[in-house]
Amino acid sequence: MGTKETEKKKRGFETFAVVWRVPLIAWQTVFFLGPLLFMVAMSFFVVKNYRMREAFEFVSWAKMLGRHTFWDAYGYTLLLAVCSTVIVSLIAFPAAYALAFKTSATVRRWAIFLLVVPFFTSYLVRIFSWYVVLAESGPVNSVLGFFGLGPFTMLNTMFGTMVGYATLTLPLVVILQTVSLANIDNRFIEAAHNLGCGAFRTIHAVIVPMAKTGLVIAALFCFILSFGDFVSPYYLGGSKPPTLAILIIDTTKSGQQWPRAAVVAVMMMLTLFTVAFSSIWYAYRKRGSR
């Protein structure tokens, strides 16, 4: 009887444990995995007479991958995302450095608090705001004109796109960099100073290598966000040439070419996976051997 009791209790435990897992598994299977797998399958469907038919053919793949437009968009998107990653990481670093080493813990906490806020506010409205600010006759140009400069064309250029990407990614990159820099033990930096390292040598030889993982992860997030964004290249960059995200929208919204849009989406995912895995591998590589 005693054993029965414990057995019952044990089974009770298991039900209890499983119940907490069910909501997530059920929801994500139906509304996350389902859509993604279906999208991969959809890239093999065929469209005839504006109607999509389930099939397993490579028509859309051949159509998309055989086109210059696709590869132009692919190259351009990659270029934009890489530029954004490099530029935003470089802009963020001095700020993260200052927040990590030149301010008190209270100021740092408040700074991070403030940086979290924009991440949850409307990105779309912020981009529209930039659109007005950077316009040919907008505030920036009229202030510059006051000093006899300009007017500069900032909209529909790569500069505009970069401003948009920075709006999206800079807060997150500064946060991630600050956290990884603040985790460095100050004694290493003091040791470097005592051994005669100047500020730049300390950054180069001590700080960057020690914070490498965090810096790479921050850059990775910047890349992922920039690579998938359509708002900045569309509204601030003028979408000429279109990026992959814009290509998905155009292909989906005009006509019923969902399978072709799915091909673009799958190519984007493959690229992101490759970049993500290689940068994570790079970020953690040297740690073990040290």
Partner: peptide, 13 residues
């Protein structure tokens, strides 16, 4: 996963 990809996948699903 980029939102635009989630958007397409969910629309189709």
């Amino acid at each position: 996963i980029p939102l635009i990809i989630m958007a397409l996948a969910m629309l189709a699903w």
